[in-house]
């Protein structure tokens, strides 16, 4: 049976791991290579690595970090942040990334999804969607959650699937960093409306929250950062707990 994936996310700024509350007030959570190694040992099913600055001057730092992390780990590895061309993807894959995650640049130019899928296969393209519930609707936000777009989340998710996305990483900005649980409603809506895997992200604060999202939605993975970085939820403990709840877990 296909297992539900537990995915730690490393948000990287200037070569260090950081994590904020609701995307601001970022504080340092340590050396990304050490964290990556620790997660593999703990039984993480995949790693996601998001460069949240991704400015030109840090591109080189990013490639170098990807190379060093890829050399250390033997689980799948997704890299995102500032990717806007097939050339960017090629460089990251050459450095050892298995998949790339695109967000703002795909909203700006949806054809990018198609271009990456054609060159590297659908499985390579993770579309990250930052979503926020405002005025009775789930809408898509870009630029690290700073900019609203007119896109409706479910419609955008469907469009990315048509364009060749292999997976959707859905982050609820309403839930992110608050540790009150994943956004069950929108995760379920998106998972039901596409036939590609959906990873739930934003809001994990306890083991029960992972159980909830796997039991109540079609999400095939749960992603979190803070609760893993600071050891609040040890991954082995989380996995053991989910197994007792009959969730298929590696």
């Amino acid at each position: 049976m296909l297992k539900k994936r537990i995915i730690p996310c490393l948000d990287i700024k200037d070569g260090r791991t950081v994590k904020g509350i609701n995307f601001v007030n970022i504080k340092d959570a340590g050396d990304p290579i050490e964290l990556a190694k620790r997660y593999v040992e703990q039984g993480a099913d995949e790693l996601v690595f998001l460069d949240i600055t991704a400015t030109v001057e840090y591109r080189k730092t990013l490639i170098d970090l990807v190379q060093r992390i890829a050399a250390e780990i033997n689980i799948p590895f997704t890299v995102g942040g500032g990717i806007s061309s097939v050339e960017d993807v090629r460089n990251l894959i050459k450095a050892g990334a298995d998949k790339v995650s695109v967000n703002s640049s795909a909203v700006k130019r949806p054809e990018l999804i198609k271009e990456i899928a054609q060159e590297f296969g659908n499985q390579c393209v993770v579309v990250a969607i930052d979503t926020k519930f405002e005025n009775g609707e789930w809408k898509v936000f870009v630029n690290g959650g700073r900019t609203a777009t007119p896109l409706k989340t479910v419609e955008w998710a469907k469009q990315t699937e048509r364009l060749g996305a292999g997976e959707i990483l859905l982050t609820s900005m309403n839930n992110d960093g608050l540790k009150n649980g994943f956004a069950i409603d929108i995760t379920n809506q998106v998972a039901k409306s596409v036939n590609i895997p959906v990873i739930a992200s934003g809001g994990a604060g306890s083991k029960q929250h992972f159980h909830e999202v796997f039991e109540q939605t079609g999400a095939t993975g749960g992603l979190a950062a803070t609760v893993f970085h600071y050891g609040e939820i040890p991954i082995p403990e989380l996995k053991a707990y989910l197994k007792t709840k009959q969730i298929p877990i590696r």
């Binding site: 049976m1 296909l2 994936r5 292999g166 997976e167 036939n195 590609i196 895997p197 590696r250």
Partner: peptide, 10 residues
């Protein structure tokens, strides 16, 4: 079911 078949399986 979801395609691609993505993740860990026995």
């Amino acid at each position: 079911d979801k395609v691609p078949h993505m993740g860990w399986n026995n």
